[in-house]
């Protein structure tokens, strides 16, 4: 390899490393819903749509240790008791994991917001995918969010 080629290679490497991290994030992460951009947040996998629909994945300890059936009942009861409006629920099945999908509504200021939660229980961890935004805009992204939440089950 001559010095010119080596120089070009170094230049390319430098240019590539200088690319915006969000693009790298989107391309490399299947958890980001289609049409969303990865959002930099501490210790979180977060994404946001151009209209402000938010998407977030977080992890909790499975304490007390229990299965999906237990946690889906506990979560639904807790959130409905708190005052969130029930919209829909269903199972969510990725290639590897079975999860639970809960859709709620709540007023936020003068607007109505949808809050979609997907829950996976894997050994001693709870994996919670949440997405929310104004209900009419949310509807436009709902399928992409559910698809992404489904893929999360595969990468756990």
């Amino acid at each position: 390899m001559n010095t010119t080629s080596l120089g070009l290679l170094l230049l390319c490497t430098l240019l590539l490393s200088g690319c915006p991290s969000s693009t790298k994030h989107l391309e490399g992460n299947t958890w980001v819903p289609q049409g969303f951009a990865a959002y930099k947040a501490a210790k979180k996998q977060a994404a946001i749509s151009p209209e402000g629909i938010v998407y977030n994945i977080r992890h909790e300890k499975n304490e007390p240790f229990a299965g999906l059936l237990f946690w889906k009942k506990a979560m639904k009861k807790r959130l409905l008791d708190t005052g969130y409006i029930f919209v829909a629920e269903s199972d969510i099945q990725s290639k590897k994991q079975k999860g639970y999908l809960l859709e709620l509504a709540a007023p936020v200021g003068k607007q109505d917001f949808t809050w979609l939660i997907a829950l996976y229980v894997v050994n001693n961890k709870l994996h919670i995918v949440e997405a929310s935004g104004e209900e009419k805009i949310f509807k436009q992204h709902r399928q992409a969010i559910v698809d992404a939440a489904q893929k999360v089950g595969d990468i756990l």
């Binding site: 947040a41 402000g52 959130l79 809050w115 919670i128």
Partner: peptide, 10 residues
């Protein structure tokens, strides 16, 4: 698990 917590984190 609170919706405001999720929204505030953004």
């Amino acid at each position: 698990m609170k919706l405001p917590n999720l929204l505030e984190s953004f």
